[in-house]
Design a protein around this nucleic acid. Structure first.
Lengths: 168, 168
DNA sequence: CTTGATTCCATTGACGCCCAAGATATCCCA
DNA sequence: TGGGATATCTTGGGCGTCAATGGAATCAAG
């Protein structure tokens, strides 16, 4: 597989090292990026991490803004300016900087969360809360999709989100 | 036969392994996906499982949202973040993670329920209850349909609720 | 020389893979 | 049509491999 999926929780050892989940390492290896590209989440207390795919997305996003524009400068500062390229040791472990750990509230345990082309790093407790909210929001979203489905096509989307036909 | 139909109940062994029903395995093999893609149902205490067909549906849904949008993040968190790609052993068995089992209330027995392009995994008792309610609702729906005329879509629901009868 | 960082090595436990057997349904043939 | 042989499927268990983790050793830099 070439996408980050699922979530894993690992512990930091006394030196602050933590193993990148093996499935994620496999994706990174396939991606061909040396090391791990990481930046603090823009709005969430989490870290965004990945390889070339993530970099490409960030660049694409910046490209959409005119050069020298204020927005682009801000975005560039927030994304590129705070990014770090972490080294991965032979066992597949990385060490997050204090700045990164502070941003995500990480202490001795972290949860890696797959997001397709990238993955996030959360403090486990915070992730649980975030997941609860995400589920609630998606349920809302699904309802709306189901309603608009009467016009003909979006019905498929609604289908994918409704486990049981009735939702009961 | 390229769709998941009917339902089967199997037992977990002492290692937590359970056989995917042979007919479902055949569909998966035809689908060409390595392993089994699984994610917790958003509303129901059940698991959604499948192969490329299910994955494609989820990806298509995500594609409709712009990167870095809040909606996409939530959707990605709820779907990709909680999905797992389970390995299927040579005998056609899988092992559900604790998180998945907890979500569906699975202990030592599971019921696989065909839903066309995907299938669900339920704790047998809960499925019975779900089926009862689904049937009741369909009866309700039929009455209203007969009265007010067709609005178009709910028919699908009826199909997915009669495992053995229709699709086979 | 001291301190921090990186690499190497060892342990533990989980997971995947192999082989085996019981049970059931299917098919063939008398 | 009945009986037996056969194939398939589910379930059970043993074993090897790999991943996560902890600690020691080596290297670099101040």
């Amino acid at each position: 597989m070439d996408r980050f999926v699922s979530n894993f929780t690992n512990r930091l050892d006394s030196k602050g090292r933590v193993s990148i989940p093996a499935p994620f390492r496999a994706v990174l290896a396939r991606d061909g990026f040396e090391g791990l590209y990481v930046h603090p989440g823009l709005d969430a207390p989490a870290l965004d991490a990945g390889g070339n795919a993530l970099l490409a997305e960030i660049n694409a996003l910046l490209e959409t803004l005119s050069p020298y524009s204020e927005e682009r400068d801000f975005l560039s500062t927030a994304l590129l300016g705070t990014s770090e390229i972490l080294k991965v040791d032979p066992e597949g472990r990385v060490t997050f900087s204090d700045a990164l750990k502070a941003h995500a509230g990480i202490t001795d345990t972290v949860t890696f969360v797959g997001h397709g082309h990238k993955f996030q790093v959360w403090e486990p407790e915070r992730f649980r809360a975030h997941l609860d909210e995400a589920r609630a929001r998606v349920r809302e979203l699904k309802k709306n999709l189901g309603r608009s489905g009467a016009n003909g096509s979006p019905v498929r989307s609604a289908t994918s989100l409704s486990p049981g036909a009735s939702g009961a």
